[in-house]
Each structure stands twice: as structure tokens, then as C-alpha cells.
């Protein structure tokens, strides 16, 4: 394996300095489950890695008050998930299950048990694989991403965070501190579904996050897709259609709108054509599943 140096900073200042060493390629490290295989395959050739998971607050899962940056203007508390929280910690967290059920479901589908005990939410986001299970969930939760550079923190809406395959809105030296999930009204329903070649330990061919949020006597819907475009995407067209109701005909229209938003490619896991079909099937299943739960 390509050799690299390892640093474990004491604080954020040190982390920033290490990450921005001039002339060096330095990668932040949290769960290692992306970095080690990428370096082994020589797709990433870092000079150094900076282990950020010990930095303060990075493994917290807690409720926080609305802040000046993220979650601004919220009257209720937001759910904060530190970037270095492990997938299993997220999947098993009662707070996440209660405040962001779709994310808990998505985290439960990542890789397998050993990976879920290491992989982190921030890592999944930073790697920004189009197939990353948690990413479409973050989109439908309309989470905010709290990031920190040299001196300042800033907040990037998840909807603007993912720019392309393995490309994010992070500036050099910036690290993800965590995400903040705005509060959702009681009765919010969420579902994450995916399809893969094998049931166990496989990558998603299509991943789908759906949420129904009680609003004005009806529901506001959010649909997010993974593995069918260069980034995880939202499907506002379908959401608008569902805002008018969820009878069978409307659901079918929404499914077609979701299909129209998908821009999948052929790869070794599936053809674009099959991915499109599975977008239809998964969307129908998720919508029906949620509709069945609507009181």
C-alpha cells in the first residue's frame, strides 16, 4: 500500500494546519473504510491523513438549539449528528430514529456490520459516492451541513453540498463538523428503500428516501434518489404532484415524475434501463408503504 503519514490533531487549529500543509495532499480520516481501499487501489495517493474523529463534538448525537448558522430560525430544537458518528450509532440511536427515521434506516443499509461499526456519516458525505446510502436521506431531511475551516464555521444546506461524483462544496482544509436536521412535525413518516444485487453487503443499484410531512391538513412530500445521477438528487416535480393528494392516479404521476428526474448510467452493477425501472418500483413501494401508515 502507498505509504502516508498519520496525524491526530489536538484541536481544530492543528487539524486545519495539518490539512493545509503546502504542496501536500492531505485527507481527513474518520472511519477509514473509504480511505484504506482507495489508497490500496491507488485511486487516492495522499501524503498524509488527519484523524479528525477525536475532535470535540464530532461523535455527538444530540438535540441542539437553532443556531446562527445551521438550523437558523427554527423554533424547536434540531438534531445534531457529529460527522464522526458511526453508521451503527446512527442506526441504533433513539434520537435519530425519532427525529430522522429515514436516516436511521439508510444507515442500517450501509455495507455490513463491520463497516457500520467504523464508517461515519461525515465520511459517507465527504466521499460523496452517488450510491452513498445516507446521502439521499440527508436531502429529504433538508439537513444543514456544518463545516469548519481555519477560523470560521459555515453552514451548507445538504441540497447544495454534493456537486458531483466524489465532489463536494468543501473548501480546502474545511472539515465537516456534523449535520443538523431541522425539527419535523409529529406524524412525519419516512422510508428508505434500496435494491442491490445481493441482499447482504452490497452497493445500492438504486437508493430511495421518501418522507411525508403533515402540513395543513394534508402532507408535504419529499423524495430523494441515490445511484441514479452524478449526485444524490431531490425530485421536486414529484413532490409538487403529491402535494395535491395521494390517490392512486396521483401516485402514478409522481412515480413518472421521479422516473423523469433519474439520469442513471450503465455500469457493472446494472444498466441504466434497469435502474430506471427500479426507480419506478421502489418509488411505488415506498409511497404505498407510507400511505398505508397515514392515519
Amino acid at each position: 500500500m502507498h505509504p502516508f503519514d498519520y496525524y491526530k490533531p489536538k484541536d481544530f487549529d492543528e487539524a486545519f494546519a495539518m490539512l493545509t500543509q503546502p504542496g501536500k495532499k492531505v485527507i481527513p480520516l474518520a472511519g477509514s473504510t473509504d480511505i484504506i481501499p482507495m489508497v490500496r487501489d491507488e485511486r487516492w495517493l495522499p501524503d498524509a491523513v488527519v484523524d479528525i474523529k477525536g475532535l470535540p463534538g464530532l461523535r455527538d448525537i444530540k438535540l441542539v438549539d437553532s443556531g446562527p448558522l445551521c438550523c437558523a430560525g427554527q423554533t424547536a430544537q434540531c438534531l445534531y449528528i457529529g460527522a464522526a458518528a458511526r453508521m451503527n450509532e446512527i442506526a441504533h440511536s433513539e434520537l435519530v430514529q425519532q427525529y430522522a427515521s429515514v436516516l436511521a434506516q439508510a444507515a442500517q443499509e450501509v455495507g455490513h456490520e463491520q463497516v457500520r461499526n467504523r464508517a461515519t456519516l461525515g465520511g459517507n458525505m465527504g466521499t460523496a459516492s452517488p450510491a452513498g446510502d445516507t446521502l439521499s436521506a440527508l436531502l429529504v431531511l433538508e439537513a444543514d451541513v456544518l463545516v469548519k475551516g481555519k477560523d470560521e464555521e459555515r453552514c451548507i444546506p445538504a441540497l447544495k453540498f454534493f456537486l458531483g461524483p466524489r465532489k463536494t462544496a468543501l473548501q480546502p482544509g474545511e472539515i465537516i463538523l456534523g449535520v443538523q436536521v431541522p425539527p419535523l412535525p409529529e406524524g412525519t413518516l419516512g422510508r428508505y428503500l434500496r435494491i442491490s444485487r445481493r441482499k447482504g453487503a452490497d452497493l445500492a443499484i438504486v437508493g430511495l428516501s421518501v418522507m411525508a410531512i403533515p402540513a395543513e391538513g394534508g402532507y408535504q412530500w419529499r423524495i430523494g434518489l441515490g445511484a441514479v445521477a452524478p449526485t444524490p438528487i431531490r425530485v421536486p416535480e414529484a413532490e409538487t404532484i403529491l402535494a395535491t393528494g395521494h390517490d392512486e392516479a396521483t401516485v402514478e404521476k409522481a412515480i413518472q415524475a421521479t422516473l423523469a428526474a433519474a439520469r442513471p448510467i450503465d455500469d457493472i452493477r446494472a444498466t441504466a434501463a434497469y435502474r430506471r425501472e427500479m426507480v419506478v418500483q421502489l418509488t411505488r413501494r415506498a409511497l404505498q408503504d407510507i400511505i398505508a401508515q397515514i392515519p
Partner: peptide, 15 residues
């Protein structure tokens, strides 16, 4: 094209 267990899938306990 698939020289790894990522894309050469064998049955797992779930399958």
C-alpha cells in the same frame, strides 16, 4: 472488470 468482492458477489448469509 470485476476483480474484487465489491463487484464479484458471492452469496452472503442473507442470501
Amino acid at each position: 472488470k470485476n476483480p474484487s468482492l465489491v463487484d464479484y458477489k458471492i452469496a452472503t448469509a442473507m442470501d
